[in-house]
Simulated assay, not measured.
Amino acid sequence: MSFFPDVPPVDDDELAEAWVPPAWTRPPEGWLPGRLAEAALLARTDEVAVAVTGVTAHPSGVGIELQWTLRNPGQGRRAWAALVDRFEGGRFRPGLADETAGLRFGVQLADGSTAIADMGHGFGGHGDPEEVPIGPVLTFAPQGGQGDDRLMTTTGTLWLWPLPADGPLELVLAWPEFGIPETRHRFEHLELDAAARRAQPLWEA
């Protein structure tokens, strides 16, 4: 007699009920977004640089693709490792750094409305994902990073919901951990509606 009990067979005809993230929490899955030719260096110090690498649009919202890079100012491996810990902690792991000094992002729209992404706090710090909030809502999704003993680069995407009207949009950031004060970058005229109409699902429903 086997020590382990029999494993019950799986019913291959039974479809798993997948949870679909609400539209305000992230870009729609299985879509090719409309892309705008936008890129900008947002802030730079002797150690770090923060940039927008792209802007995408869907009928439901806008994705702002981000990259931030840390460079080794000529330190040894131990000091570099400590610097990387600060870099990662100030990004979305407040356990490694002063939470009040971490990287923060926000937006201000043409109508004066604002939204802030609370980094590392679930759905942007907006509570129950099933409860539809009042927009605009800004959430952040980290995507990972890579590096060596010279450079460390990480990426992530801000998701702004719902799709705002065409016009100027200001992206605001601050990163006290690395000496970046509140800084604003103004995208003068984002043609979001046209870009959103170029978005398409990868498969027909």
Rank of each mutant, 00 (worst) to 15 (best):
A117M: 09
T183V: 13
R104K: 09
T154I: 04
F187M: 13
D11R: 13
R86D: 06
D98C: 04
F123A: 05
I116W: 14
R26V: 11
A101S: 06
Q75H: 11
F105A: 10
S60H: 11
T100S: 13
P162D: 05
A174L: 05
P21D: 11
G61H: 04
D111S: 01
G90I: 07
D98E: 06
G112F: 13
T69E: 15
E130A: 15
L83G: 00
F105N: 01
A16E: 00
G106I: 09
G145Q: 05
L36A: 08
R198C: 08
G125A: 02
L109M: 08
T139M: 03
F87P: 00
D85I: 00
E191A: 15
D148W: 08
G34C: 08
I116N: 02
R86T: 02
E65N: 12
T183D: 12
P176M: 07
T100G: 10
W203I: 08
S2T: 14
P27K: 15
L173W: 08
S113H: 14
L160D: 00
I64S: 00
R26S: 11
A194Q: 12
A110T: 05
G147F: 03
P22F: 11
G95E: 03
W31L: 06
A195L: 11
L83Y: 02
V62Q: 09
T183G: 09
P129W: 14
M152Y: 10
D149S: 11
P22C: 10
L15M: 09
V55G: 06
W80I: 09
W175T: 02
P136R: 12
G95H: 06
G120P: 00
G124D: 08
V132H: 14
P9S: 10
L163W: 07
L169H: 12
G122D: 14
D118C: 01
F3R: 03
G124K: 07
F92A: 06
R197E: 15
A115G: 01
T183N: 08
E170F: 00
P28I: 14
V20R: 03
A117R: 08
D193H: 13
E17H: 10
G89W: 06
P22R: 12
L160P: 01
G127L: 03
Q146W: 11
E177V: 07
H58M: 02
F123I: 01
E170Q: 14
R91C: 07
T183Y: 13
P5V: 01
N72K: 04
R44Q: 14
A23M: 02
D98W: 00
S60L: 14
T69Q: 13
G167K: 10
F3D: 05
E188H: 11
G89I: 04
Q146D: 09
G125K: 06
V107R: 11
V52Y: 02
V55P: 03
W203M: 07
W31H: 02
G145M: 04
G179R: 08
W19C: 05
P133F: 00
W19D: 10
W203P: 01
E182D: 04
D6A: 14
D148V: 09
P73H: 06
G76F: 09
A205C: 00
A199R: 06
F105S: 06
D149E: 11
A16Q: 00
G61L: 04
W19H: 08
